[in-house]
Simulated scan of single mutants.
Amino acid sequence: MKRAIPVVVLSIAGLVPVWMYEPSALTSTTESAAPASTPSASASSSSGSSSGSNVVKGTTVNTEKGAVQVQVTFSGEQITAVKMLQQPNHPQTTAAVPKLIAETLEAQSADIDTVSGATITSDGYRESLQAAIDDNAKTASASPSPSASESSASASQTVDGSTVNTEKGAVQVQVTFAGDKITAVNMLQQPNHPQTTAAVPKLIAETLEAQSADIDTVSGATITSDGYKESLQAAIDAKG
């Protein structure tokens, strides 16, 4: 299954230091053994926002490798960001999370592939994700339909940032706005480098939190970070 680069939010990617590990570990090794625990799930919870987005916490799924829990941001029924609240402390999990988030944003559902070498984490991720999706659907069905003026005000706008040619390769972002709020960031171009791949989720997560290009540079990916911020600022300026 081909998957696009858009890891937004992937966002969110739990903000874990994934650049410390090589993504190749996903296909060369499997998750190491860890003390087993009884699988269980806690109730999910959600909270709305004045901008029309809905942030929902999925169930906490206790796997053999550790607890897995996601937090999902929705704009209506659209998944705009996914953040890891809990995940096993393991290299394969750390490397797998950006892929799981990227596939979620593309599929817009929990019907995504298992990441090789991180089967247990993948299963827990999907279970927690599905719980968040179900909870959001219940909230949406219980909410009154927005008026025409409200729908117009919350209409999304997608803007491509400038293409920034760095020493490592081209960097370009695509930003989705709901009014003045940044709801999603998608990478259109990025250097084919492990540090870049690992840094992108953190850059996107910080963007969604800061709602601007005034974000920190990711250690080990300075060049990509600078290109990202320049392209992002261009998109913000173009949106007006």
Rank of each mutant, 00 (worst) to 15 (best):
S50W: 11
S44Y: 06
S145N: 08
A4M: 00
V97E: 05
S45P: 07
Q130S: 12
S154F: 08
A41C: 05
P98N: 06
I204K: 01
T163W: 06
P98G: 02
T163M: 10
I236C: 04
V164C: 05
P17R: 07
E150L: 09
S151E: 14
A4N: 01
V9G: 13
H193L: 11
S147I: 10
S32K: 15
L26D: 10
R3N: 01
N186C: 00
S141F: 04
D180F: 11
P6F: 07
S109V: 08
G117S: 12
V200A: 15
S32L: 14
D180K: 14
G227I: 00
A4G: 00
P88M: 10
L15I: 05
T158W: 04
T163H: 05
L100Q: 07
I223N: 02
F177S: 10
P98R: 06
N136P: 10
A140G: 07
R3D: 01
S147V: 12
T158L: 02
T119M: 08
S116D: 09
A148S: 14
Q71P: 00
K57P: 02
S152W: 08
Y21M: 09
D237R: 02
L26A: 14
A132V: 04
S141W: 08
I12S: 13
L232M: 06
Q69K: 07
Q86G: 06
D180S: 13
S40G: 12
S51T: 14
G52C: 10
N62R: 10
